[in-house]
């Protein structure tokens, strides 16, 4: 589904990603772990197509086609979803209005008519139940005055509504207490299928107890330095990132 080849990227002359290789197949869950400043969030932004990042080499291939020339919204239309570490506020725009616009713009890009209002309502009802979301929440302004947990739950709700092929969860566990973490993780797990893939970006192993990955990659200084199964996450938790770094220099 997703293949990243020797990706080099940075911002304003500063190299951040220095040759990333990653292959994600449908049905798989990959975790990318790494210390602060290793380039985890840059990787998710570059995959999603954030303009301020320069790609200096390599390629990002999604379903057989390079995405480098595509705008962020075109990547979204192809089925790439990024759950933001810091979701932004849009005052005066309700969660419902926002997701309705997102769905209909995506449908328009595919040459489809707007989703009928009744279908939209039905879907909203189903997905909000699945994620244990109070529907009153959906009429509030997007992310405005939301708690950390509400913001992340809202991200996963949008993911559920948009039904992406590839979901990248950027530090979804940050700012969550244990109950919120459980609800968000349950949501993600319910949405997993053999047709979609999830990339979980996290600093801590904690989230991976709930969203169990098939593969774990360790990102240090813009490179994936170690890959393994889910047990790698536990080993990292126990020994710390210094262990990987020490191994590298050894």
């Amino acid at each position: 589904m997703l293949e990243i080849k020797n990706l080099n990227a940075g911002i304003e002359d500063k190299d951040i990603l220095k040759g990333i290789d990653l292959k994600v197949n449908a049905g798989e869950v990959h975790a990318i772990m790494g210390p602060n400043g290793s380039g985890k969030s840059t990787l998710s932004s570059v995959i999603a197509g954030k303009e301020e990042y320069e790609v200096n080499g390599g390629d990002i291939i999604f379903e057989g086609e390079s995405m480098l020339e595509l705008d962020a919204e075109e990547r979204a239309h192809k089925g790439v979803f990024l759950s933001f570490q810091y979701p932004v506020e849009i005052p005066g725009v309700s969660v419902t209005n926002f997701i309705k616009t997102a769905i209909n713009e995506t449908r328009k890009a595919k040459g489809l008519e707007d989703m009928p209002a009744s279908d939209m309502l039905k879907m909203i009802r189903e997905k909000s139940e699945l994620l244990e979301i109070d529907r009153k929440f959906l009429s509030r302004s997007l992310n405005e005055g939301f708690s950390g947990g509400e913001k992340k739950r809202n991200e996963i709700f949008q993911m559920a509504m948009l039904e992406p092929k590839l979901a990248i969860l950027d530090e979804t566990d940050s700012g969550l207490d244990i109950d919120a973490l459980r609800i968000v993780s349950n949501g993600v797990n319910k949405l997993r299928s053999k047709d979609n893939a999830v990339v979980v970006i996290t600093h801590y192993q904690r989230l991976l107890e709930y969203i169990v990955p098939d593969f774990v990659h360790v990102l240090v200084d813009g490179k994936i330095v170690k890959s393994g199964g889910k047990e790698l996450a536990l080993e990292l938790e126990e020994k710390g990132y210094d262990w990987v770094k020490a191994e590298l220099t050894a």
Partner: peptide
């Protein structure tokens, strides 16, 4: 804000 919307498929 713009990037957030773009990411959700909104130009």
């Amino acid at each position: 804000q713009i990037f957030y919307c773009n990411q959700r498929g909104i130009d």
